[in-house]
């Protein structure tokens, strides 16, 4: 039986948006899919050895908040750190896996990770700061796999 294939484009680099591609990738791998993720633009942040992912309510009015804060207050220094800490605390309490552990599970499950070469150049990422498992490549490399995939997702 040939394996089904899942191709994902991960384009966002915030703590909340780090989850969907890695949850779906790890789950698909567990279901027997061959999975490849193309990390491009801010998504490249998810490949850094030392993960520093944050979340903010700015520009995201849908983010549930314990109390409603005026936008002016949300812009104050330290708010992003505070919200990130609160989000991490909430995730831990609800049994949501730590993002680094989830990424490790993806690596273990042989989810292939393609790091957008153009983004590496554009934002001056250092190859040695990205996890070994990630392989640099471009759009054409992604389509080699995406073109023969059963499911393609953009996130």
């Amino acid at each position: 039986m040939t394996k089904k294939k899942l191709a994902i484009i991960a384009s966002r680099g915030t703590l909340d948006w780090a989850y969907p591609p890695l949850i779906l990738a790890s789950t698909a791998a567990a279901l027997g899919y061959e999975v490849r993720i193309f990390f491009t633009f801010y998504g490249l942040k998810l490949l850094e050895k030392k993960l520093d992912l944050r979340v903010t309510s700015l520009g995201n009015p849908a983010m549930p908040m314990p109390i409603s804060l005026p936008v002016m207050v949300q812009t104050l220094p330290g708010m992003e750190m505070l919200m990130t800490q609160m989000m991490k605390g909430k995730m831990k309490k609800k049994g949501v896996v730590d993002i680094e552990e989830l990424r490790n599970l993806c690596v273990e499950a042989e989810v292939q990770m393609l790091a957008c070469q153009m983004t590496i150049d554009l934002f001056e990422f250092k190859r040695e700061n990205l996890i070994e498992h990630a392989k640099p490549g471009g759009a054409a490399t992604f389509f080699e796999f995406a073109g023969v995939s059963d499911v393609n997702l953009f996130m």
Partner: peptide, 13 residues
Amino acid sequence: SGLNCPMPILKAK
């Protein structure tokens, strides 16, 4: 127990 999606499936696998 206590773990949320997708961990029960990943661990079961």
